[in-house]
Design a protein around this nucleic acid. Structure first.
Length: 273
DNA sequence: AACAGCTCCAACCGCGTGGTT
DNA sequence: TAACCACGCGGTTGGAGCTGT
């Protein structure tokens, strides 16, 4: 499958944006809205690649961006999210209002990595740097499945709801899951190597089943942030953000992982590297 | 003051994915 | 089904600014 270049490189500016270019882009987007990035540069009179315009807008010019230093609270949230999501910067950014994926990625690489290293934590695995046994188990563990049979799902939330370097990942183990196998009881997730399932809105399910799925725990609570502004579920007392329902030939367990019950996001597979 | 090394971040690049024809 | 388009993502880079000598 071929791919044409995103723009004609010979006639485009590169490098830092000038004030004039910024103004042109802002006024064009104010007038016409975001999107159609490929045609935007020409329409806006910019000698830039559409990709470059998009990036400039998203990372720098958007009016809802929060500029300035990250707070300690944001730091910790990023660390927790990264321990669950890995380098999924866009997903992490989605949980930090006014922050962009690029900003968070840069901040991670320049500040948080070092911060974790100073704490003796491997930023890649969120484990103690000298924990050889853990490293061995990491090497032996490939995948933990979040997608499995609802009827037989065994779900455990760690007793300690606070996220530490090796806790508080939900484990869902289904009887048909060959990787784990029937009879496998709860296990502490030994790695962050996840395979998650998130479902789109279920349109064809019985109402009763759907109602049962509504008892969810928001992502803030799942991170132990019940009292923070990240808590979306109100009482913070619901346990287990697990919902289940039929999907095609088999049953599936879905997890409202980021509190994204909007159905906009269909992130069926989410793998940690 | 001059230089070298370091830090940080805006911007670039290549690729994956979903949609359209 | 293949070809193409458009968008978004994550990794990487270039260079401005800072710091130490």
């Amino acid at each position: 499958m071929g791919r044409s270049p995103c723009c004609e490189k010979a006639h485009t500016n590169k490098g830092a944006w000038t004030k004039e270019e910024d103004d042109r882009l802002i006024s064009y987007i104010h007038a016409h809205g975001e999107g159609s990035w490929r045609s935007l540069p020409k329409a806006a009179g910019l000698l830039r690649c559409g990709k470059s315009c998009r990036l400039r807008w998203i990372n720098y010019l958007r009016p809802d961006l929060k500029r300035g230093n990250f707070t300690e609270q944001e730091d910790e949230l990023i660390i927790k999210l990264h321990s669950l999501l890995g380098n999924k910067w866009s997903l992490i950014a989605g949980r930090l209002a006014g922050r962009t994926d690029n900003e968070i990625k840069n901040y991670w690489n320049t500040h948080i990595r070092r911060k974790l290293l100073n704490r003796g934590i491997d930023p890649a695995t969120h484990r103690p740097l000298n924990d050889q046994e853990v490293q061995a188990s990491v090497a032996a563990t490939n995948t933990i499945s979040f997608a499995s049979s609802a009827s037989a799902a065994i779900v455990k939330q760690e007793q300690d709801t606070s996220i530490t370097s090796e806790s508080s990942i939900f484990c869902v183990v289904g009887e048909n899951n060959s990787k784990v196998g029937k009879g496998t009881l709860l296990e502490r997730c030994p790695d962050l190597n996840l395979e998650l399932t998130m479902s789109p809105p279920r349109l064809n399910e019985p109402d009763e089943a759907f109602k049962n799925m509504e008892r969810t725990l928001c992502f803030g609570c799942s991170l132990g942030l019940q009292n923070s502004n990240h808590c979306k579920c109100g009482d913070g007392g619901n346990i287990g953000n697990i919902s289940s329902g039929n999907r095609n030939s088999g049953t599936a367990t879905s997890y409202d992982f980021l509190g994204l019950k909007t159905g906009v996001l269909d992130y069926r597979r989410l793998e940690m590297k």
